[in-house]
Design a protein around this nucleic acid. Structure first.
Length: 331
DNA sequence: AAGAGTGCCAACCGCCTCCCT
DNA sequence: GAGGGAGGCGGTTGGCACTCT
């Protein structure tokens, strides 16, 4: 059965974390940074293995985590990146900076995967299960090209994920950089503790309601000459868009952000969102949890089904090669 | 009201990769 | 180059909450 689990020895604690444990872990990292995870539990006075501490920190306690419902843009990004990268959740997570790979993975498995299946799309290959009508339009040829480009893009994203990881590591590995990081999100560790570790479901919902109207979409403008990219975050709300600029060294982001910019400009987003989430333009609902309409069983659904899948693939294609006429070739 | 079924997600497990010696 | 330790990743599961019958 392979090697024994790391925390089997010495009767280390497993299972759900208590608020007290969370507090100890947070206080320690706040003070010292995490350093070596293996030695951390003892130093922090925790009867957990280092691995468990790391997981708790990265998936729950880290101050830069956005929790709650995924917005449309996030769902869209996950689906598109999954089409390119497959189940490489950590790579996908680097493009949803406030989401953890675990959360994305869970959301995919519980929501998005099912939704694609309902649409007649294979969630593994992101191709329609019945490919015949599309093949006749030359989509198969495109798919071959896509596959090739996806390999390239995949490698790029992997490098990017590594860079992101390294920068995060540097940030916390020694001593965390004072408090500015936390204040940036409007709360300190103390409030974090009160708000999160002893939070009831009701509280979580309230928090979600607070967070959900504010969706953040990031764009990077490539500064080809200088090699420095500028990150622009559009903080959207019902009242409009706020533009936030912050410097960033993450040069590889351009592809995905280019795509997002193109989508915003061309209004593709609406079609894609409709396709996945159910909108008026397609005249039916994909709202997976409630008010579902069976797609495959509808009598006149074949035409919509075909159009949906075509739009879906178009969207993925445009993701890889967003605007052939306006921008220089990427490959 | 209560038992069964289902959904969701935090946490675990084991494998893999990287890095140091 | 080999070996071992540590961290990271993706698949899976346990248990709670909610819904259905």
């Amino acid at each position: 059965m392979g090697r024994s689990p790391c925390c089997e020895k010495l009767g280390l604690k497993k299972g759900p974390w208590t608020p007290e444990e969370d507090q100890k872990l947070l206080a320690y990292i706040e003070e010292h940074g995490h350093g070596s995870w293996r030695s951390l539990p003892e130093k922090a006075g925790l009867h957990r293995c280092g691995k468990s501490c790391r997981l708790r920190w990265t998936n729950y306690l880290r101050p830069d985590i956005k929790r709650g419902k995924f917005n449309l843009q996030e769902e869209q990004t996950i689906i598109q990146l999954h089409a390119l990268l497959g189940n490489r959740w950590s790579a996908i997570a680097t493009h949803l900076p406030k989401r953890t790979d675990n959360e994305i993975k869970n959301y995919w498995n519980t929501h998005l995967k099912k939704r694609l299946v309902k649409m007649g799309i294979d969630p593994v290959t992101h191709k329609p299960k019945n490919e015949t009508p599309l093949s006749s339009l030359g989509v198969s040829k495109n798919a071959a090209t896509l596959s090739h480009m996806a390999q390239w893009e995949s490698a790029r994203l992997e490098a990017e994920a590594r860079l992101a990881r390294e920068s995060k590591l540097l940030h916390y590995q020694s001593k965390p950089s004072s408090h500015h990081h936390h204040h940036q999100h409007g709360f300190t560790h103390k409030t974090l503790l009160t708000n999160w570790t002893s939070k009831t479901n009701e509280d979580q919902q309230q928090q979600q309601q607070l967070e959900s109207p504010t969706s953040t979409v990031s764009f990077s403008e490539m500064k080809e000459s200088s090699g420095i990219s500028t990150k622009i975050a559009f903080v959207g709300s019902s009242t409009g868009l706020t533009l936030i600029k912050e410097p960033e060294n993450d040069w590889i982001n351009s592809t995905i952000h280019e795509f997002e910019t193109t989508q915003m400009a061309e209004g593709i987003e609406e079609g894609f969102t409709d396709l996945l989430l159910g909108g008026d333009s397609l005249g039916r609902s994909f709202s997976a949890d409630k008010n579902e309409t069976a797609v495959e069983s509808s009598g006149g659904g074949d035409c919509n089904y075909y159009e949906d899948n075509k739009n879906y693939l178009d969207s993925i294609f445009s993701f890889v090669d967003p605007s052939p006429s306006d921008s220089p070739p990427m490959f």
